[in-house]
């Protein structure tokens, strides 16, 4: 049985629950998990219940990396580190926005831990508000599409590059839609000494507005359109990419989700979709995906 126990309150088709399950599948029992505030924390630990079959701590929204670094320091100081893996699992808001400073500090200090960003591209726990992980033209409750707006006007922050710039020995992107690939990368990240990072693309059926049965399908479309490139970096150099055989146009990904539907109904939407296609094309070129 998974170390993420059944009975938690995640939505049917929840990407966070999948991600957490895959992480624990990769790591086994000998790990300590730190969660910032967010969906995962809320739906797994309604007191007095907990879905976590491994030691788990949630402190605040913006400090998971600092808490994880303290756990690591404590185990080191007490001679209890052995092979125990210390893992932080945070959402895009906790990672890319409010927790960025603490993450930067922990990576700079070089703690032996792995930070996993489960990126569902908005503040889902509070009701689908925009974060710096929200992609261009996604409609969220704080960047809604409207008569004079195509939704979020800004590009997604390139978090893996920021972590790579800290000199992290291992940075990878992954997707909940590619479980074996994700599990391999989490395992690898945890085994490499020092602060490592896995950024997991995680389609949220509730926030992105698709059927809960389609989480994997939508996740695969993000990869197949090259909007979510899967790659690995070691010491800031790209060392591996997942090639795309028959690349699909971005429309296929966008059409599958309610958050982009305005692009297909609003005047001028087609022109804006071209900008999104340009992002995918850039990814193909930059990472050599084809």
């Amino acid at each position: 049985m998974s170390l993420l126990k059944p009975g938690h309150r995640g939505c049917a088709g929840c990407c966070d629950a999948l991600a957490a399950k895959f992480v624990l599948d990769a790591l086994g029992e000998d790990c300590i998990v730190v969660s910032p505030t967010g969906c995962l924390e809320v739906f797994t630990t309604p007191y007095p219940e907990s879905a976590w079959g491994v030691p788990w701590i949630h402190s605040l929204f913006e400090n998971a990396a600092a808490v994880a670094s303290g756990v690591e320091a404590a185990l080191k100081a007490m001679g209890k580190m052995n092979n125990t893996k210390i893992i932080a699992i945070g959402g895009d808001g906790a990672t890319m926005d409010i927790g960025l400073q603490a993450i930067s500090g922990a990576f700079e200090r070089g703690h032996d831990f792995t930070y996993i960003c489960v990126d569902n591209e908005a503040y889902m726990n509070t009701g689908i508000q925009r974060s710096s992980g929200t992609p261009m033209y996604a409609s969220t409750t704080t960047s809604p599409a409207g008569k004079v707006s195509f939704g979020n006007p800004l590009n997604k922050k390139n978090m893996p590059a920021i972590i790579a710039a800290h000199g992290s020995p291992y940075v990878a992107t992954a997707s909940v839609a590619y479980a074996p690939d994700m599990i391999r990368k989490v395992k690898k990240a945890a085994q490499i000494k020092g602060p490592t990072y896995v950024h997991v693309h995680a389609p949220c059926c509730t926030g992105w507005k698709f059927e809960g049965s389609k989480t994997i399908e939508v996740g695969r479309l993000a990869v197949e359109t090259a909007l979510w490139p899967l790659y690995e970096m070691e010491k800031s150099e790209v060392t591996g990419v997942r090639k795309i055989k028959n690349r699909k146009p971005v429309e296929e990904y966008l059409k599958a989700q309610g958050r982009f539907k305005h692009l297909f109904t609003m005047e001028g939407g087609a022109k804006e979709i071209k900008k999104i296609q340009a992002t995918a094309d850039w990814n193909v070129k930059h990472f050599g995906l084809e």
Partner: peptide, 16 residues
């Protein structure tokens, strides 16, 4: 890198 992380790290360390 900040007092916020100073106390946060101790929260993790103390829990450990």
């Amino acid at each position: 890198e900040s007092e916020f992380s100073a106390i946060s790290a101790l929260i993790g360390a103390s829990a450990a």
